[in-house]
Design a protein around this nucleic acid. Structure first.
Lengths: 171, 171
DNA sequence: CCGATCGTTCAAATTGAACTAAACGAATTA
DNA sequence: TAATTCGTTTAGTTCAATTTGAACGATCGG
């Protein structure tokens, strides 16, 4: 049976929500993340209740694929969570109220691993320097300059490593 | 008169410098900046002395255009500086030793303006909310939720604004 | 004044990432 | 079991942004 269905998609009516969606988009963009991910977060942040994938798709006018990957990303970061609506097998999403957890999580999951990677990289630089000095690829003066600069970086990095956890406590 | 010139360009021989160039490239990439800019900084960071544009071009194998814009960017940020080598009208560049100034500058020029923009945006959200409530675009419950969430964001933002300057002192 | 040497600017090309449409798979219902 | 309804995956497109080559302007030396 064929039925004619109106194709007008639901739209965001409230200005606040529009601005919030835009703000989320901008934020994600500045963080180098997909714009659509920020839109989803902005939408859910001021939503009246949980929204399904298709709700999100309809409201934002993005593809289902973007909505799917976006919600998965946000869920993995603990920014939104999946909620089950009784008697409905759709996935519904809502924002996680406490952003503090999100920030703490981003430190653990994003910042900290990156700091450790940098630490390893610094160690690698020192090893490479030894290697180059041994191979005669750097004369003594050059090796001295390199060593000094790298150690300066290491000091700075150590300061960062100790300051960031303290900073987190302030939030 | 025609002379046959060998086309082998000077290359980076020391491993340390190669890794440093790569590290700079990666860092800039993560900050959403051109890769070549990071390469230039990495190269200069472990250089034995000031380098000219053509030195940089030759060592990194990038175009002169990239080198020109990259050095200008880095100079504008105070990350590198121009030095004049007596009896030579070329531009020579070297890194600025103190990275502390660079960090402080980035707070003043990048972070702070962005925080202020966010503040304005938050105010805008509250105005939009009032408007929507007045127009009847949001029922009472929805308006309550929105107001609460936005105020929460504002509190968080205030914390950030007060914590960041303190954090900077630690670096 | 002419040629050469440098640095900058600009349009075009290349690259990389996000987005979409469509196919797919899983789960459910009739 | 066939038909539906969802969510995910993937291949291809689109779009933004870096990169580059080439032209330009400026400055110096002969």
């Amino acid at each position: 049976m064929l039925t004619m269905v109106s194709k007008t998609r639901p739209a965001i009516r409230a200005k606040v929500r529009l601005e919030m969606v835009e703000a989320g988009a901008r934020l994600c963009r500045q963080l180098g993340l997909p714009r659509s991910t920020g839109q989803i977060y902005g939408l859910l942040f001021l939503a009246g209740g949980p929204m399904s994938l298709d709700d999100i798709v309809g409201m934002l006018g993005i593809s289902k694929a973007s909505a799917s990957t976006g919600t998965r990303q946000l869920t993995s970061w603990g920014a939104i969570r999946q909620v089950w609506v009784p008697g409905n097998r759709r996935d519904y999403f809502e924002v996680v109220a406490d952003l503090g957890d999100l920030i703490r999580g981003s430190y653990e999951n994003v910042i900290k691993p990156r700091l450790e990677a940098t630490q390893r990289r610094l160690d690698g630089l020192l090893r490479a320097l030894d290697h180059d000095a041994a191979e005669g690829l750097l004369d003594k003066d050059e090796a001295m300059v390199c060593a000094e600069r790298i150690k300066y970086l290491a000091r700075l990095h150590r300061k960062l490593q100790s300051a960031l956890p303290l900073f987190e406590k302030l939030i």
